[in-house]
Design a binder for these strands. Structure first.
Lengths: 217, 217
DNA sequence: ATTCTTTTGCAACACTAGTTACATATTAAT
DNA sequence: ATTAATATGTAACTAGTGTTGCAAAAGAAT
């Protein structure tokens, strides 16, 4: 149990120590709970109310949108050190989540009680900068997503999707079925299979069961 | 000249008086410059560096994105009392604008020196809430834009575009050519003409030169 | 009044993406 | 080993959107 606490302190310092004030880091250590979450777990769903600000320390999270008919679309990813801007407002205003957050691998997430948000915004310049930076980064990423949907063809988006995943998870192997890829891109399985086949013919990937392997990034 | 100053105070109090602390409103009055801007003027362009935080007091602004090839896409609108979240970060970090802001009608815009941003974030709770709320509203709107592009067909998006414009400008007459509409929706003139014709046949609109008239909202 | 410019209409065609239906291959379960 | 479940391959067809090229209409400029 003591080891867990030491590991937590180590992790927080590594992830946030360089961007947040020392005093704030100490407060975070005392006011947070570290959670380890398995791969492919939905940690926030559309409509959920949040009691904690989540900060990803290790691993990666994908943020997606879902409409009434259950159609999905991948919006962006969150990596180590980042928080989810969309959930921040849920904390401040007690509104419901408009997005879904799913772990892409086993991840370590820091949970901070929502009342600290306003206190720290007043007290720490680095926290203000962190929160504002976070919002801005997510907005920029949302706009990149819009760019992709608007200006790119599906085959280009597919290749971007594969390389993004590879970079994020640090592996040229993407362990998804065609169906899962189709859901993230809001397309259909047959279309994705067809386009993957084209990428294979162009020698950009090789197709395996439950797995796509990129030749390079 | 005195009258201009009185009008400015009146405007600021009307637009911001109910959401911001009295003391902050006074600071805004003393630290801002009111600008009147004509219709269809580009007030911020992609790549611009900002020296002021703009707050729209009267009128309306459209925010759009442009890719390398010059293709456009309308992202969202800004109305009275709102600020542009995307330009906020330009202020804090001195980065370049990633969006274009264009007036949709004659508008009154308050310009606040960027250094006030950090000072007020520390000093005023209402300013923190205003800025965070602003970010969140824009993110929500970006996601609605994503929803529209991803889940709606072009004819639905076109009708939404027309009713959004009508609501925003408070008139059933939309003074745009088919070409202009096509640019906002990132489509082509011929396609928009075709879809407008369908809406006219369905008795939802009437088509005129340089003008579409909605039968109702 | 005539010419020029802008805007809109229209038809034919092309392309991308989505759908349906079925076959085949691979793995898991019994 | 046999069966069941899951994943992928393929073909034919459809729908939606974009492109090209030209004509007609409306308005502005001379």
């Amino acid at each position: 149990m003591m080891k867990m606490q030491e590991q937590k302190i180590e992790l927080i310092k590594n992830s946030l120590g360089y961007i947040l004030e020392e005093e704030l880091v100490a407060e975070i250590i005392n006011n947070s709970q570290l959670k380890e979450i398995e791969q492919d777990k939905v940690i926030v769903n559309v409509g959920d109310e949040l009691n904690n600000i989540p900060i990803v320390l290790e691993g990666s999270i994908k943020i997606s949108r879902e409409n009434e008919e259950g159609d999905e679309l991948l919006l962006y990813y969150i990596e180590g050190g980042d928080t989810c801007a969309m959930t921040l407002q849920c904390c401040v205003r007690h509104t419901k989540s408009e997005i879904r957050a799913t772990t892409m691998e086993k991840s370590l997430i820091l949970m901070i009680p929502i009342n600290m948000m306003e206190v720290w915004l007043h007290k720490y310049k680095s926290w203000r900068e962190y929160i504002l930076q976070s919002y801005h980064t997510r907005m920029t990423e949302l706009m990149e997503t819009i760019d992709a949907i608007t200006f790119m063809r599906l085959d280009e988006r597919l290749l971007k999707y594969l390389t993004d995943q590879a970079k994020l998870l640090g592996s040229l192997e993407i362990n998804h079925t065609h169906q899962q890829i189709a859901e993230d891109l809001h397309s259909s399985r047959v279309v994705i299979s067809r386009l993957l086949k084209q990428l294979e013919i162009k020698k950009i990937i090789t197709i395996h069961r439950n797995k796509i392997i990129l030749k390079s990034i």
